[in-house]
Each structure stands twice: as C-alpha cells, then as structure tokens.
C-alpha cells in the first residue's frame, strides 16, 4: 500500500509539473493565462471525479484499496481547485476585487464554481484522522458535501462553454454514472472476511 500511495502522489503531481514545463518553454499558446486557468480547472474536476470512483469500485468488486487512496485524491482535487481559483484571482483579474465580486454575484458559472470551492473547503480542513475521530458520525455526513460540490463543478464548466457542450457533458455523464452506482446494494462480505 505504501508504494501505491507514493506512486499515486507522484502521478497527481505530474499535471502541475507538465504545466510548469509548458509555461517555461512558452508553449501555452497565444493566451497563456486562459490556458493555465482551464488546465488547472480541468485537473481539479478530473481528480474530484476520481475521488468518487472508490466507493462504486468497492461496491462492484469488493476491493477496499481504492478507498485508502481516496483522501489523497480528494486533497489533490482541492489543491488543483485552489490553484485554479488563484490563477483566476491573480493572473486573470489581478486582485480586482470589485470585478471578482461582480463575477461571483452576477455570472452563474462563476457563482457555481465558487460554491463548489466553498463546499470543498471544510472537507479539506477535516480530512485528517484526528478530525474523523473528533467528528465521529458527523464526519461522514459532512463529507457527503462532495456530491453537490461535484455537481456544481460540472455545472460551472457546462455554463462557461459557448456552443460545443461535448466536453462538459462527457464529465456530466461520468459523474451521473459514479453517483448512480452508489445506489447499488452493498456487496455481501467475502466469506474469508467473515471467518476472521
């Protein structure tokens, strides 16, 4: 398990390394700021969806190892969401708080993105074992906020697009499947487990 966690940790960092490499090589195209924001948003969403894969995978296969990677995936999703938000605040708007506030209030796609981020924030803050112990059964209820956060994140992407909805709808379908699979009945415990 230890080596797997390390490998996944490094894998989760590669998109950032790749982005830095593209930036240093000047390969981000004619509108590099837009490219950075989109790229970080894409990875935040992908990792958020990947975080949601653990449970259906357990329901379908009985495997428990994906659940043990879940916290790290979720924290990386949050990490990319923070970078995505920072790139918007710093690179795109250069701390023009009045305009940022107007965006949040008046543009539904930005409202949804910001809400998704705000829902992820307490999850990241309570991700430690200590928090799990302290919150007890409330921890699980709190962390169900990932469902509305993921739905808002996909809506955020969908409402941003001008006419070609293929990409956001692709993520919407994946999210629908991941949420739908949770309705499956939990698998019967493996006999070996029962004997122990």
């Amino acid at each position: 398990m230890h080596w797997l966690k390390r490998a996944v940790f490094l894998l989760c960092l590669t998109p950032l390394v790749w982005l830095l490499a593209l930036a240093l090589l000047g390969e981000l195209g004619a509108n590099p700021i837009e490219a950075v924001i989109r790229y970080l948003g894409d990875w935040a969403l992908r990792l958020l969806l990947l975080t949601l894969v653990a449970t259906p995978l357990r329901l379908l296969t009985g495997w428990t190892w994906p659940v043990r990677l879940r916290r790290m995936l979720g924290l990386f999703a949050f990490f990319y969401a923070v970078l995505h938000l920072c790139s918007y605040v710093v690179l795109d708007q250069f701390f023009a708080w009045d305009i940022i506030w107007e965006d949040i209030v008046e543009r539904p796609f930005i409202t949804m993105g910001m809400l998704a981020f705000l829902l992820l924030l307490p999850l990241a803050l309570t991700s430690s074992h200590a928090s799990m112990r302290r919150l007890g059964r409330h921890w699980k209820r709190l962390h169900r906020l990932i469902y509305p956060a993921a739905i808002l994140a996909v809506a955020h992407f969908t409402l941003m697009v001008k006419a070609d909805l293929r990409e956001p709808l692709f993520y919407a379908v994946i999210l629908a499947v991941l949420l739908g699979l949770r309705l499956l009945p939990a698998p019967r415990r493996h006999p070996v487990t029962r004997e122990t």
Binding site: I33, D92, Q93, I99, D103, R107
Partner: peptide, 16 residues
C-alpha cells in the same frame, strides 16, 4: 449575460 465586457485581455499583455 455570462461574462463582463468592461475589460479585455489584449493577447500578449499581462493585465486586462
């Protein structure tokens, strides 16, 4: 309706 038209990014410039 979905974004502001008050400012623009001239490609090649950092600030809007």
């Amino acid at each position: 309706p979905r974004w502001s038209q008050k400012r623009e990014r001239r490609l090649g410039e950092l600030r809007k």
